[in-house]
Simulated scan of single mutants.
Amino acid sequence: MATATFKVNNDILNWVLQIAGTQLNSEWINKINTWIKGEKTPTINQLKNLSKKSQIPFGNFFLSQPPRVEMPLLQFRTIDNSGITDASHGLLSTIDAIQLRAAWLEDYRIKEGYSKIAFIGMGNKKKYRSASYKEIAEEILKYFDLVKGWNSTLKSNQNAFNFLRKKLSQKGIVTETGSFVGNKTRDSLNINEFRAFVLINKYAPFIFINTKDSENARLFSLVHELVHLWYEKTEIFNYNFQTNPQYLNKKLEQQVNKISECILFDKDIFVKAWIESNDLALDKIYEIAKKFKTSPIATAITAKNYGLITQRVVDEVKGETTKNVANRKNKGGPNFYDTLAYRIDINFATSVINSTEAGDTTYLDAFSLLNVKNMKGYDSLKQRVEEKM
């Protein structure tokens, strides 16, 4: 008896390769490419297995064109990805999860009598329309009780990120992190697709940081998304540090980048450190990046903007940065619940736990919101959250 096969449209197969991301191993990728080239035709059983592996509905393989996923947030990408027709399963699933949490937290905070967060949209006030980038940066630093050069006084990239994250949390802004979808460690998020995103909400604004990005790049992403909250502008941050990026909203992104630069690299401190260093330009960049707890590429762009180096040096640093990120491997870390307690925002987790203990939220809803499977997971996470308070 002949094995049933089906010739899948190549547009569908290319779409599968695009959105499945790291869910597919090299064997599956090679197999799909042979189907695209027409060297082989997939069997129905192979398509069923691919459906399960890629989490793409089986029926989609029989369509003539890829289905369009309608998600309003996708239109707010920083860069115009002309070659990308759809978002990956990983990005869509992560957005779904964060939107669910934001909706819950907004409802919770309104019921508890919280006020709207004044910072959201503050940059749209008339008095800030003619303010310089430096002046706006100073206003943002003041709002979060930060001083100029705050990040240059901390011990490490992680210390600086955690310090700012805590400052944001104290003002009601939720920051969550992750490098894979939910708890599926084999379902990685794609750093080439997005570094971070921000959801605007007057009561429950959320920033999500993709920790597939290098540790020294995450602080810039966090500050960048914070400035988007200042302007009350939702965004998926997929900046690729190209020389002439194709911004979807060029004026806004240039403003956000300049203000972020002022928040992270106080010009007086930066230039003083540059002058005092006896190293060559390239070495100075890595030295100052370490001082400000930021990435070498962000440091190089700032040095160019301050008139200290040329674009050639920026391009050289960019090449090294791209290579280092590509070669970076995940390190072993703490156990599952310690990691989960770090990924999830402490104030959000506390709100869910308090609401659940008061009987206002069901345990099943709490499990979903906190990304745990059962009561044992809930208790383990609760213990770690209480230790952090």
Rank of each mutant, 00 (worst) to 15 (best):
W15G: 02
T234P: 10
M375W: 03
Y342W: 07
N33C: 07
F208I: 06
E135C: 08
W150T: 06
P42Q: 11
N371G: 03
L24D: 05
S115R: 12
N10M: 07
F76R: 11
K111V: 14
I301H: 06
K323G: 14
N151Q: 05
V313W: 10
D315N: 13
D187T: 12
D187R: 13
S82T: 15
Y203K: 03
L248C: 13
T3E: 13
D283K: 08
K267H: 00
L369A: 00
S115M: 09
F220M: 09
L154R: 14
F265E: 03
S355G: 12
L13T: 02
F292Y: 12
N330I: 15
K267P: 02
K382Y: 11
V181P: 00
G377E: 00
A118P: 02
L252H: 04
F76I: 00
V313I: 13
E225L: 12
P57C: 00
K293P: 02
K31W: 10
V198Y: 02
S132E: 06
V352N: 00
K323E: 11
N216Y: 07
G307F: 09
S82G: 14
E253T: 02
G333D: 06
N335W: 07
V69G: 01
I236M: 11
E70T: 04
V352T: 03
I136Q: 07
E135G: 14
N374S: 09
Q99M: 14
K267R: 12
I98N: 08
S260T: 08
K148D: 01
K272W: 09
F270M: 08
D283H: 08
D145M: 15
E176A: 04
T175N: 01
Y286E: 15
N249Y: 05
N33Q: 11
K318P: 04
N238M: 14
S88M: 07
E106R: 05
S169Q: 09
I309A: 01
G319F: 05
Q242V: 04
I353S: 04
Y363A: 13
N244E: 05
A102V: 15
